[in-house]
Write a protein that binds this DNA or RNA. Structure first.
Lengths: 203, 203
DNA sequence: TAACGTCGTTTCTTTTAGTAAACTTTTAGG
DNA sequence: CCTAAAAGTTTACTAAAAGAAACGACGTTA
Protein backbone atom coordinates (compact mmCIF):
# COMPACT_ATOMS: atom_id res chain seq x y z
CA UNK A 1 0.00 0.00 0.00
CA UNK A 2 1.11 3.48 -0.74
CA UNK A 3 1.70 5.77 2.18
CA UNK A 4 -1.27 8.02 2.35
CA UNK A 5 -0.59 11.73 2.46
CA UNK A 6 -1.34 13.17 5.84
CA UNK A 7 -4.46 15.20 6.30
CA UNK A 8 -2.69 17.35 8.77
CA UNK A 9 -1.87 20.63 7.11
CA UNK A 10 1.06 22.86 7.88
CA UNK A 11 0.16 26.21 9.32
CA UNK A 12 0.29 29.02 6.86
CA UNK A 13 2.52 31.05 9.12
CA UNK A 14 5.32 28.52 9.19
CA UNK A 15 7.79 29.75 6.61
CA UNK A 16 9.93 26.64 6.65
CA UNK A 17 7.08 24.23 6.14
CA UNK A 18 7.43 21.60 3.51
CA UNK A 19 6.37 22.67 0.07
CA UNK A 20 4.73 19.90 -1.86
CA UNK A 21 7.15 18.87 -4.61
CA UNK A 22 4.35 17.80 -6.95
CA UNK A 23 6.88 15.64 -8.73
CA UNK A 24 6.61 17.89 -11.70
CA UNK A 25 9.55 16.25 -13.41
CA UNK A 26 8.09 12.81 -13.20
CA UNK A 27 4.79 13.98 -14.61
CA UNK A 28 6.45 15.77 -17.48
CA UNK A 29 8.42 12.69 -18.41
CA UNK A 30 5.32 10.54 -18.08
CA UNK A 31 3.37 12.69 -20.46
CA UNK A 32 6.23 12.99 -22.89
CA UNK A 33 6.74 9.24 -23.07
CA UNK A 34 3.03 8.57 -23.32
CA UNK A 35 2.95 10.74 -26.39
CA UNK A 36 6.10 9.13 -27.67
CA UNK A 37 8.03 12.36 -27.95
CA UNK A 38 11.77 12.89 -27.63
CA UNK A 39 13.28 15.72 -25.65
CA UNK A 40 14.17 17.36 -28.94
CA UNK A 41 10.56 17.26 -30.09
CA UNK A 42 9.32 18.74 -26.86
CA UNK A 43 12.04 21.33 -27.12
CA UNK A 44 10.70 22.41 -30.50
CA UNK A 45 7.14 22.43 -29.25
CA UNK A 46 7.85 24.45 -26.15
CA UNK A 47 10.89 26.49 -27.06
CA UNK A 48 12.71 25.14 -24.04
CA UNK A 49 16.26 23.83 -24.45
CA UNK A 50 16.74 20.08 -24.55
CA UNK A 51 19.15 20.25 -21.66
CA UNK A 52 16.70 22.24 -19.58
CA UNK A 53 13.98 19.70 -20.19
CA UNK A 54 16.29 16.94 -19.08
CA UNK A 55 17.02 18.78 -15.86
CA UNK A 56 13.36 19.43 -15.20
CA UNK A 57 12.50 15.78 -15.71
CA UNK A 58 15.24 14.79 -13.30
CA UNK A 59 14.29 17.40 -10.73
CA UNK A 60 17.60 19.18 -11.01
CA UNK A 61 15.99 22.59 -11.28
CA UNK A 62 12.89 24.43 -10.21
CA UNK A 63 11.69 25.88 -13.49
CA UNK A 64 10.48 29.44 -13.65
CA UNK A 65 6.83 30.24 -14.06
CA UNK A 66 7.23 31.13 -17.71
CA UNK A 67 8.93 27.81 -18.39
CA UNK A 68 6.15 25.95 -16.61
CA UNK A 69 3.58 27.72 -18.73
CA UNK A 70 5.42 26.88 -21.91
CA UNK A 71 5.52 23.27 -20.77
CA UNK A 72 1.82 23.18 -20.10
CA UNK A 73 1.07 24.66 -23.49
CA UNK A 74 3.51 22.57 -25.42
CA UNK A 75 2.69 19.28 -23.76
CA UNK A 76 -1.03 19.84 -23.58
CA UNK A 77 -0.89 19.30 -19.84
CA UNK A 78 -4.39 20.44 -19.19
CA UNK A 79 -6.59 20.21 -16.12
CA UNK A 80 -3.94 21.76 -13.94
CA UNK A 81 -6.25 21.50 -10.97
CA UNK A 82 -5.51 17.80 -10.91
CA UNK A 83 -2.02 18.67 -9.78
CA UNK A 84 -3.02 20.75 -6.86
CA UNK A 85 -3.74 20.32 -3.22
CA UNK A 86 -7.14 20.74 -1.74
CA UNK A 87 -8.99 23.32 0.27
CA UNK A 88 -12.02 22.79 2.41
CA UNK A 89 -15.63 23.52 1.60
CA UNK A 90 -19.19 22.49 2.27
CA UNK A 91 -19.36 18.82 1.39
CA UNK A 92 -15.89 18.32 2.82
CA UNK A 93 -14.85 14.71 2.93
CA UNK A 94 -18.17 13.35 1.84
CA UNK A 95 -19.06 10.68 -0.63
CA UNK A 96 -22.41 9.44 -1.88
CA UNK A 97 -22.98 6.36 -3.99
CA UNK A 98 -26.04 5.58 -6.06
CA UNK A 99 -26.39 2.12 -7.51
CA UNK A 100 -27.80 1.60 -10.98
CA UNK A 101 -31.53 2.22 -11.00
CA UNK A 102 -31.58 3.22 -7.34
CA UNK A 103 -31.85 6.96 -7.85
CA UNK A 104 -34.88 8.98 -6.87
CA UNK A 105 -37.53 8.82 -9.60
CA UNK A 106 -39.10 12.03 -10.91
CA UNK A 107 -41.43 11.19 -13.78
CA UNK A 108 -42.96 13.88 -16.00
CA UNK A 109 -45.11 13.68 -19.12
CA UNK A 110 -42.13 13.85 -21.44
CA UNK A 111 -39.18 12.76 -19.34
CA UNK A 112 -38.55 10.11 -16.75
CA UNK A 113 -35.88 11.52 -14.50
CA UNK A 114 -33.85 9.56 -12.00
CA UNK A 115 -32.06 11.81 -9.57
CA UNK A 116 -28.62 10.51 -8.61
CA UNK A 117 -26.65 10.97 -5.41
CA UNK A 118 -29.55 12.77 -3.78
CA UNK A 119 -28.40 12.31 -0.20
CA UNK A 120 -25.77 15.02 -0.48
CA UNK A 121 -27.84 18.16 -0.55
CA UNK A 122 -25.69 21.25 -0.87
CA UNK A 123 -23.69 20.28 -3.89
CA UNK A 124 -22.47 22.20 -6.89
CA UNK A 125 -23.79 19.77 -9.45
CA UNK A 126 -27.04 17.87 -9.81
CA UNK A 127 -26.66 14.69 -11.83
CA UNK A 128 -29.61 12.71 -13.11
CA UNK A 129 -30.35 10.03 -15.64
CA UNK A 130 -33.33 10.57 -17.88
CA UNK A 131 -35.41 8.37 -20.14
CA UNK A 132 -36.69 10.56 -22.93
CA UNK A 133 -40.30 9.69 -23.68
CA UNK A 134 -41.07 12.59 -25.96
CA UNK A 135 -40.97 11.92 -29.70
CA UNK A 136 -41.72 15.31 -31.06
CA UNK A 137 -41.05 18.89 -30.23
CA UNK A 138 -44.79 19.58 -30.02
CA UNK A 139 -45.12 17.60 -26.83
CA UNK A 140 -43.48 20.47 -24.99
CA UNK A 141 -45.57 23.51 -24.22
CA UNK A 142 -42.57 25.78 -24.18
CA UNK A 143 -38.81 25.85 -23.88
CA UNK A 144 -37.22 24.48 -20.77
CA UNK A 145 -35.08 27.21 -19.36
CA UNK A 146 -33.30 27.68 -16.05
CA UNK A 147 -30.21 29.09 -14.41
CA UNK A 148 -26.81 27.53 -14.80
CA UNK A 149 -25.02 25.29 -17.22
CA UNK A 150 -25.86 21.83 -18.35
CA UNK A 151 -23.92 18.84 -19.55
CA UNK A 152 -25.68 16.10 -21.47
CA UNK A 153 -24.32 12.69 -22.46
CA UNK A 154 -26.30 10.19 -24.52
CA UNK A 155 -26.12 6.82 -22.79
CA UNK A 156 -28.43 4.87 -25.06
CA UNK A 157 -30.41 5.43 -28.23
CA UNK A 158 -30.63 8.62 -30.26
CA UNK A 159 -32.04 12.04 -29.49
CA UNK A 160 -32.72 15.32 -31.15
CA UNK A 161 -31.38 18.23 -29.18
CA UNK A 162 -33.44 21.38 -29.72
CA UNK A 163 -32.24 24.75 -28.57
CA UNK A 164 -33.41 28.28 -28.98
CA UNK A 165 -30.41 29.69 -30.75
CA UNK A 166 -29.28 26.72 -32.79
CA UNK A 167 -30.64 24.30 -35.32
CA UNK A 168 -31.78 20.95 -33.90
CA UNK A 169 -29.05 18.36 -33.94
CA UNK A 170 -29.14 14.61 -33.64
CA UNK A 171 -26.99 13.04 -30.93
CA UNK A 172 -26.13 9.37 -30.76
CA UNK A 173 -24.86 7.20 -27.97
CA UNK A 174 -21.58 8.58 -26.65
CA UNK A 175 -22.16 12.10 -28.00
CA UNK A 176 -22.29 14.94 -25.52
CA UNK A 177 -23.25 18.57 -25.41
CA UNK A 178 -22.51 21.38 -22.98
CA UNK A 179 -24.70 24.46 -22.98
CA UNK A 180 -26.03 27.48 -21.20
CA UNK A 181 -29.26 26.29 -19.60
CA UNK A 182 -30.86 29.73 -19.73
CA UNK A 183 -31.07 29.19 -23.45
CA UNK A 184 -34.32 27.33 -24.13
CA UNK A 185 -33.72 23.62 -24.66
CA UNK A 186 -35.56 20.33 -25.04
CA UNK A 187 -34.77 16.80 -26.06
CA UNK A 188 -36.77 14.14 -27.89
CA UNK A 189 -36.02 10.51 -28.66
CA UNK A 190 -35.46 9.59 -32.28
CA UNK A 191 -34.70 5.93 -31.69
CA UNK A 192 -37.43 3.30 -31.57
CA UNK A 193 -36.75 2.75 -27.90
CA UNK A 194 -36.76 5.65 -25.46
CA UNK A 195 -33.31 7.17 -25.38
CA UNK A 196 -31.46 7.38 -22.10
CA UNK A 197 -29.28 10.33 -21.27
CA UNK A 198 -27.20 11.63 -18.41
CA UNK A 199 -27.71 15.21 -17.38
CA UNK A 200 -25.54 17.21 -15.03
CA UNK A 201 -26.60 20.69 -14.04
CA UNK A 202 -24.44 23.28 -12.30
CA UNK A 203 -25.73 26.62 -11.09
CA UNK B 1 13.86 46.32 -15.45
CA UNK B 2 14.45 42.83 -16.59
CA UNK B 3 15.00 42.08 -20.23
CA UNK B 4 12.45 39.65 -21.58
CA UNK B 5 11.62 38.07 -24.89
CA UNK B 6 9.72 40.47 -27.06
CA UNK B 7 5.99 40.26 -27.34
CA UNK B 8 5.91 42.28 -30.50
CA UNK B 9 7.82 39.90 -32.70
CA UNK B 10 6.06 36.78 -31.48
CA UNK B 11 3.60 34.88 -33.62
CA UNK B 12 1.22 32.11 -32.66
CA UNK B 13 3.26 29.39 -34.33
CA UNK B 14 6.56 30.65 -33.01
CA UNK B 15 7.84 28.24 -30.38
CA UNK B 16 9.93 31.00 -28.89
CA UNK B 17 6.91 33.13 -28.25
CA UNK B 18 6.68 34.51 -24.76
CA UNK B 19 3.93 33.07 -22.65
CA UNK B 20 2.57 35.91 -20.60
CA UNK B 21 2.14 35.05 -16.92
CA UNK B 22 -1.45 36.21 -17.08
CA UNK B 23 -0.97 39.08 -14.71
CA UNK B 24 0.29 36.91 -11.93
CA UNK B 25 1.57 39.97 -10.13
CA UNK B 26 -1.74 41.75 -10.26
CA UNK B 27 -3.51 38.73 -8.88
CA UNK B 28 -1.07 38.29 -6.05
CA UNK B 29 -1.41 41.92 -5.07
CA UNK B 30 -5.18 41.74 -5.33
CA UNK B 31 -5.35 38.79 -2.98
CA UNK B 32 -2.89 40.33 -0.56
CA UNK B 33 -4.82 43.58 -0.35
CA UNK B 34 -8.15 41.80 -0.07
CA UNK B 35 -6.83 40.04 2.97
CA UNK B 36 -5.33 43.26 4.25
CA UNK B 37 -1.82 41.91 4.49
CA UNK B 38 1.45 43.79 4.13
CA UNK B 39 4.37 42.45 2.12
CA UNK B 40 6.10 41.68 5.40
CA UNK B 41 3.18 39.55 6.56
CA UNK B 42 3.07 37.64 3.30
CA UNK B 43 6.82 37.22 3.56
CA UNK B 44 6.44 35.55 6.94
CA UNK B 45 3.62 33.37 5.70
CA UNK B 46 5.37 32.22 2.57
CA UNK B 47 9.03 32.44 3.48
CA UNK B 48 9.64 34.64 0.44
CA UNK B 49 11.66 37.82 0.86
CA UNK B 50 9.74 41.08 0.97
CA UNK B 51 11.73 42.40 -1.94
CA UNK B 52 11.01 39.36 -4.03
CA UNK B 53 7.30 39.72 -3.38
CA UNK B 54 7.43 43.31 -4.47
CA UNK B 55 9.11 42.32 -7.71
CA UNK B 56 6.57 39.60 -8.37
CA UNK B 57 3.69 41.98 -7.83
CA UNK B 58 5.23 44.44 -10.24
CA UNK B 59 6.00 41.82 -12.86
CA UNK B 60 9.71 42.42 -12.62
CA UNK B 61 10.49 38.72 -12.38
CA UNK B 62 9.12 35.39 -13.47
CA UNK B 63 9.15 33.51 -10.18
CA UNK B 64 10.42 29.97 -9.99
CA UNK B 65 7.99 27.15 -9.56
CA UNK B 66 8.99 26.61 -5.95
CA UNK B 67 8.26 30.25 -5.23
CA UNK B 68 4.92 30.00 -6.98
CA UNK B 69 4.07 27.01 -4.84
CA UNK B 70 4.99 28.83 -1.67
CA UNK B 71 2.80 31.70 -2.80
CA UNK B 72 -0.13 29.44 -3.46
CA UNK B 73 0.16 27.89 -0.04
CA UNK B 74 0.78 31.06 1.88
CA UNK B 75 -1.87 33.12 0.16
CA UNK B 76 -4.40 30.36 -0.24
CA UNK B 77 -4.37 30.88 -3.96
CA UNK B 78 -5.52 28.37 -6.45
CA UNK B 79 -3.05 27.14 -9.03
CA UNK B 80 -5.48 26.68 -11.91
CA UNK B 81 -6.45 30.32 -11.67
CA UNK B 82 -2.91 31.25 -12.52
CA UNK B 83 -2.94 29.36 -15.75
CA UNK B 84 -6.42 30.10 -16.91
CA UNK B 85 -7.36 33.35 -18.49
CA UNK B 86 -9.64 35.49 -16.45
CA UNK B 87 -12.94 36.32 -18.06
CA UNK B 88 -16.10 37.62 -16.49
CA UNK B 89 -18.54 36.74 -19.21
CA UNK B 90 -20.50 33.56 -18.90
CA UNK B 91 -21.13 31.05 -21.60
CA UNK B 92 -24.45 32.82 -22.29
CA UNK B 93 -26.35 31.28 -25.14
CA UNK B 94 -23.58 28.92 -26.10
CA UNK B 95 -23.62 25.28 -26.98
CA UNK B 96 -20.79 22.88 -27.65
CA UNK B 97 -21.14 19.38 -29.03
CA UNK B 98 -18.56 16.63 -28.79
CA UNK B 99 -19.13 13.49 -30.83
CA UNK B 100 -18.26 10.11 -29.41
CA UNK B 101 -14.51 9.64 -29.32
CA UNK B 102 -13.84 13.14 -30.60
CA UNK B 103 -12.83 14.69 -27.30
CA UNK B 104 -9.35 15.93 -26.58
CA UNK B 105 -7.12 13.07 -25.42
CA UNK B 106 -5.07 13.47 -22.25
CA UNK B 107 -3.30 10.21 -21.52
CA UNK B 108 -1.47 9.53 -18.27
CA UNK B 109 0.20 6.43 -16.93
CA UNK B 110 -2.88 5.26 -15.09
CA UNK B 111 -5.78 6.96 -16.86
CA UNK B 112 -6.66 7.76 -20.42
CA UNK B 113 -8.70 10.94 -20.26
CA UNK B 114 -10.81 12.32 -23.06
CA UNK B 115 -11.80 15.88 -22.39
CA UNK B 116 -15.31 16.67 -23.64
CA UNK B 117 -16.75 19.95 -24.86
CA UNK B 118 -13.39 21.61 -24.62
CA UNK B 119 -14.17 24.49 -26.95
CA UNK B 120 -16.17 26.27 -24.29
CA UNK B 121 -13.46 27.40 -21.94
CA UNK B 122 -14.88 29.23 -18.97
CA UNK B 123 -17.39 26.73 -17.80
CA UNK B 124 -18.54 25.64 -14.39
CA UNK B 125 -18.07 21.97 -15.10
CA UNK B 126 -15.33 19.98 -16.78
CA UNK B 127 -16.65 16.71 -18.20
CA UNK B 128 -14.37 13.97 -19.39
CA UNK B 129 -14.50 10.31 -20.24
CA UNK B 130 -11.75 8.16 -18.86
CA UNK B 131 -10.43 4.71 -19.60
CA UNK B 132 -9.04 3.35 -16.35
CA UNK B 133 -5.84 1.51 -17.07
CA UNK B 134 -4.69 1.10 -13.50
CA UNK B 135 -5.35 -2.28 -11.90
CA UNK B 136 -4.03 -1.69 -8.42
CA UNK B 137 -3.90 1.11 -5.93
CA UNK B 138 -0.13 0.87 -5.88
CA UNK B 139 0.15 2.29 -9.37
CA UNK B 140 -0.64 5.65 -7.85
CA UNK B 141 2.14 7.27 -5.92
CA UNK B 142 -0.24 9.38 -3.91
CA UNK B 143 -3.86 10.39 -3.65
CA UNK B 144 -5.37 12.50 -6.36
CA UNK B 145 -6.72 15.57 -4.67
CA UNK B 146 -7.94 18.91 -5.93
CA UNK B 147 -10.45 21.63 -5.40
CA UNK B 148 -14.09 21.12 -6.11
CA UNK B 149 -16.60 18.35 -6.33
CA UNK B 150 -16.68 15.39 -8.60
CA UNK B 151 -19.34 13.21 -10.12
CA UNK B 152 -18.44 9.79 -11.46
CA UNK B 153 -20.57 7.42 -13.52
CA UNK B 154 -19.39 4.00 -14.60
CA UNK B 155 -20.09 3.62 -18.31
CA UNK B 156 -18.50 0.25 -18.88
CA UNK B 157 -16.78 -2.44 -16.84
CA UNK B 158 -16.16 -2.45 -13.11
CA UNK B 159 -14.00 -0.25 -10.92
CA UNK B 160 -12.82 0.00 -7.37
CA UNK B 161 -13.28 3.46 -5.97
CA UNK B 162 -10.68 4.29 -3.33
CA UNK B 163 -11.00 7.29 -1.11
CA UNK B 164 -9.14 8.58 1.87
CA UNK B 165 -11.94 8.54 4.39
CA UNK B 166 -13.91 5.52 3.24
CA UNK B 167 -13.35 1.87 2.54
CA UNK B 168 -12.83 0.98 -1.12
CA UNK B 169 -16.05 0.14 -2.88
CA UNK B 170 -16.73 -1.65 -6.13
CA UNK B 171 -18.85 0.16 -8.71
CA UNK B 172 -20.43 -1.52 -11.71
CA UNK B 173 -21.82 -0.14 -14.93
CA UNK B 174 -24.55 2.37 -14.18
CA UNK B 175 -23.41 3.04 -10.62
CA UNK B 176 -22.40 6.55 -9.72
CA UNK B 177 -20.69 8.41 -6.92
CA UNK B 178 -20.56 12.06 -5.94
CA UNK B 179 -17.77 13.23 -3.68
CA UNK B 180 -15.62 16.02 -2.38
CA UNK B 181 -12.55 16.01 -4.63
CA UNK B 182 -10.30 17.41 -1.92
CA UNK B 183 -10.63 14.06 -0.26
CA UNK B 184 -7.92 11.85 -1.75
CA UNK B 185 -9.36 9.57 -4.39
CA UNK B 186 -8.31 7.11 -7.06
CA UNK B 187 -9.95 4.55 -9.28
CA UNK B 188 -8.77 1.22 -10.63
CA UNK B 189 -10.33 -1.22 -13.06
CA UNK B 190 -11.48 -4.57 -11.67
CA UNK B 191 -12.93 -5.90 -14.91
CA UNK B 192 -10.81 -7.78 -17.43
CA UNK B 193 -11.19 -4.92 -19.89
CA UNK B 194 -10.28 -1.37 -18.92
CA UNK B 195 -13.32 0.23 -17.35
CA UNK B 196 -14.71 3.40 -18.87
CA UNK B 197 -16.12 6.12 -16.69
CA UNK B 198 -17.55 9.58 -17.03
CA UNK B 199 -16.18 12.25 -14.75
CA UNK B 200 -17.58 15.69 -14.22
CA UNK B 201 -15.65 18.15 -12.07
CA UNK B 202 -17.03 21.39 -10.71
CA UNK B 203 -14.97 23.93 -8.83
C1' DT C 1 8.55 70.37 12.07
C1' DA C 2 11.67 67.06 13.73
C1' DA C 3 12.00 62.31 14.84
C1' DC C 4 10.12 57.87 14.35
C1' DG C 5 7.88 53.85 12.42
C1' DT C 6 5.85 51.35 8.72
C1' DC C 7 5.55 50.04 4.13
C1' DG C 8 6.85 49.39 -0.49
C1' DT C 9 10.73 49.95 -3.88
C1' DT C 10 15.45 49.73 -5.42
C1' DT C 11 20.22 48.36 -5.25
C1' DC C 12 23.64 45.14 -4.68
C1' DT C 13 25.33 40.50 -4.05
C1' DT C 14 24.64 35.66 -4.00
C1' DT C 15 22.46 31.86 -5.72
C1' DT C 16 20.03 29.39 -9.16
C1' DA C 17 18.03 28.62 -13.66
C1' DG C 18 18.67 28.33 -18.71
C1' DT C 19 21.31 27.36 -22.81
C1' DA C 20 24.84 25.69 -26.20
C1' DA C 21 27.98 22.46 -26.81
C1' DA C 22 30.53 18.50 -25.40
C1' DC C 23 29.95 14.10 -23.84
C1' DT C 24 27.83 9.44 -22.85
C1' DT C 25 24.36 6.08 -23.64
C1' DT C 26 21.06 3.75 -26.35
C1' DT C 27 19.14 2.15 -30.65
C1' DA C 28 19.17 0.44 -35.37
C1' DG C 29 21.42 -1.40 -39.35
C1' DG C 30 24.75 -4.06 -41.92
C1' DC D 1 29.75 -7.57 -33.29
C1' DC D 2 30.91 -2.79 -35.36
C1' DT D 3 29.40 1.63 -36.65
C1' DA D 4 26.39 5.60 -37.11
C1' DA D 5 22.76 8.12 -35.77
C1' DA D 6 19.70 9.55 -32.33
C1' DA D 7 18.49 10.34 -27.57
C1' DG D 8 19.62 11.78 -23.19
C1' DT D 9 22.98 13.72 -19.69
C1' DT D 10 26.59 16.68 -18.05
C1' DT D 11 29.57 20.64 -18.42
C1' DA D 12 30.73 25.36 -18.71
C1' DC D 13 29.02 29.58 -19.16
C1' DT D 14 25.48 33.40 -19.20
C1' DA D 15 21.24 35.27 -17.74
C1' DA D 16 18.00 35.76 -14.36
C1' DA D 17 15.90 35.34 -9.84
C1' DA D 18 16.16 35.56 -4.65
C1' DG D 19 17.51 37.73 -0.51
C1' DA D 20 19.72 41.38 2.58
C1' DA D 21 20.13 45.78 3.23
C1' DA D 22 19.70 50.52 1.93
C1' DC D 23 16.51 53.86 0.44
C1' DG D 24 12.49 56.85 -0.14
C1' DA D 25 7.65 58.03 0.69
C1' DC D 26 4.17 58.66 3.84
C1' DG D 27 1.72 58.96 8.22
C1' DT D 28 1.82 59.70 13.15
C1' DT D 29 3.13 61.93 17.24
C1' DA D 30 5.47 64.97 20.37
Amino acid sequence: MVSRPSLETATASDPDRFVEPLELGKRVKEIRLTKGWTLEEVSKRTGIARSTLSKIENDQVSPSFTIVQKLIKGLGMDLPQLFVEASEHSIAGRRDITRKGKGEPHPTATYEHELLNFSISRKKMVPFKTKVRARSFDEFKEWVRHDGEEFLLVLEGKINFFSELYEPIELKEGDSVYYDASMGHTVVSTSTKDAEILWVVAR
